[in-house]
Amino acid sequence: MTGAAARWRALVAVAAVVAVAAIDATPAAAEYGDVVINRRAERGGVRPVVFPHWFHRIRFRCKVCHSELGFRMRAGANDVLMADVIDGKFCGMCHNGQTAWGAEQCDLCHSGKPGTPPGIQGGNETRGPGRW
C-alpha cells in the first residue's frame, strides 16, 4: 500500500470514530417512559399531552395510578377524555387544583410539539425491540 493510501484509510477510520463518539455523546431525545397523548388533543385544537413517568414516579409509586386510578399498563389502552379528568377521574384524581394543578391549566399538560404521534417514547417502547 502506498503512503498516501494508508493515510487516507487512517483518516477515514478517525472520521468514523469521531462520528460514532458524537452520536454516543448526544443525550437520548425523549426521557425514558415519556408518553404522548394525542388521539384527540390536536383535533380538539390544543397541543398533544406529554406525560412524564420520571416526574410522577418520584412522587407516587406505580400502584397509585396503575391500581387506584385505573390506568392500564399499556400506552394507548386508556381512553381518557377531558371530561373524565374534569370529573375527577384518571389524571383528575390529583390534577384538581389541590394535589396538583387543575384542568384549567391547559398548557401545562398540553405542552407537546404539534404533530407528535401518540405512544410511549424514549425507551425501546412497550412493544419492545422485536418491533423496532
Partner: peptide
C-alpha cells in the same frame, strides 16, 4: 478519541432539556 468517547458515555449523565427533547413544543409557555 475512542477512549475519550467511551469515558464520556460511561461517566457523564446528561438529560435533554424539555425544549430540546423532541417531544415538547419549545414555544409552549409550560
Amino acid at each position: 478519541v475512542a477512549a475519550a468517547a467511551s469515558a464520556q458515555v460511561a461517566y457523564k449523565r446528561a438529560w435533554p432539556t424539555l425544549a430540546a427533547d423532541g417531544l415538547h413544543d419549545p414555544a409552549s409557555p409550560a
